[in-house]
Simulated scan of single mutants.
Amino acid sequence: MSADPIPLAGVIGWPIWHSKSPRVHGYWLNFLGIKGHYIPMNVAPEDLETVLHSLPKAGFVGCNVTIPHKEAVLALADEVSDRAARVGAANTLVFKDGKIHADNTDGYGFIANLKQNAPDWQPDAGPAAVFGAGGAARGVIDGLLTAGVPEIRLTNRTRERAEALAEHFGDKVTVIAWDRAEIAAEGANTLVNTTSLGMEGQPPFTLSLAGAAKGALATDIVYVPLDTPFLIEARKQGLETVDGLGMLLHQAVPGFNAWFGTSPAVDAALRDVVLAP
């Protein structure tokens, strides 16, 4: 009698060296004593389809997907979740019953991070200001709308990208020109930086957040550095802040549960592991 196969999962991207996902899932597997493996896979765009259809045959139960494959995998999936369809991208695949199931857990991870680290945050208390309209903004906007934020003010250096997102998500999203971006913060209850401004090697975030509502919450999806210029500016204005690392950690939970059969904890020990040199 053959032994039960050891489940395999991983993350595919191009390149993949920067991904923290192997550290996250590797810690959980070890901590929980689960016989399984999670590996990084460097997959070129032209090889994506071949690799995806080969992984289940090699014992893989699923995988994460990162840049530049998050949109392309939707066309290759047999089933797409509602939230992946809304976002227009997938970051989590489950291989089951001979089919590829695609999901997007970015919005879930974003909101779970805020709820864990700012438990008094009320998403429906007022509008949200979202800076940036790239791929990451899609998951953030979907998460905010799903959580009950009544209005999103979206501003981006390239206005056309913001307008495309506003059209995609509907009339709760209003576009504000980048040269008037500080208006987005006026009276906002939630402020989110999804731009690369403030990331290591990028220009700093220099916009004023002085007009935000009293007691507003500010968060940055960037986590390198952990304390970004955006968060520093927010604290100067007396705002509550939540760093971006928790989004990365929480978005990993649904996939781990689907692949390995348990929902792991996002706690201080996991943060220490991911932040270690």
Rank of each mutant, 00 (worst) to 15 (best):
G88S: 11
V173E: 09
T92N: 03
G107T: 05
S208T: 13
L207C: 07
A269S: 14
D47H: 12
V51R: 09
I67W: 05
H250Y: 11
D142E: 10
L114N: 00
I6K: 14
V43A: 03
L275T: 07
N113T: 09
Y108F: 13
L52T: 09
Q116H: 11
N30L: 14
A85Y: 11
G10T: 07
N113K: 09
Y223C: 06
A181W: 08
G126A: 06
W121I: 00
A89Q: 06
P119I: 03
N193P: 06
A213V: 04
H18L: 02
R271V: 09
L8M: 15
V43T: 01
G10C: 07
L144F: 06
P5G: 12
T92K: 01
N156Q: 07
Y108S: 03
I6H: 13
A102F: 12
E167A: 14
I39V: 14
A166R: 10
H37G: 15
D267Q: 13
V242D: 08
A133K: 11
V51K: 01
D47E: 11
E79R: 15
G246S: 08
L8D: 14
W178P: 01
F60M: 04
L217K: 03
L231C: 05
G109L: 05
V173I: 14
V87D: 06
N117C: 09
N30I: 12
V173R: 06
R161E: 03
S196M: 10
T50V: 11
D82K: 15
A133S: 14
L197Q: 13
I152Q: 00
R83M: 05
A44T: 01
Q116C: 13
V192Q: 09
A75L: 01
S81N: 05
G148M: 13
D227W: 03
A147C: 03
Y108K: 06
A77L: 08
G201S: 14
L48D: 02
G59A: 11
H250M: 12
R235E: 14
A147Y: 02
N42A: 14
N113W: 07
L248S: 01
T228P: 00
R83L: 02
F230P: 07
P56N: 15
V80L: 12
Q202T: 12
W17T: 11
N117E: 10
P40D: 02
F95G: 10
A112I: 11
D171C: 10
T174F: 12
I34K: 14
G98W: 10
T190A: 12
G244F: 01
T195W: 03
G143N: 02
D82A: 15
E186R: 10
K115V: 09
T92V: 01
L145M: 08
A89W: 08
V94Y: 10
S54Y: 13
T219V: 04
A84E: 03
H37E: 15
G238T: 08
T155K: 05
N257K: 15
G59L: 13
L114G: 04
M41A: 04
R23D: 12
H37V: 15
G244A: 02
A166G: 13
G187P: 02
A85F: 06
T92R: 01
D103E: 13
E163I: 09
A164R: 15
V149A: 05
A185K: 05
V11S: 06
V65I: 10
P254R: 08
A77Q: 07
P127G: 01
R86G: 04
G135D: 08
K99S: 09
A128F: 02
A44I: 01
P127L: 00
Y38C: 08
V94S: 15
A258P: 14
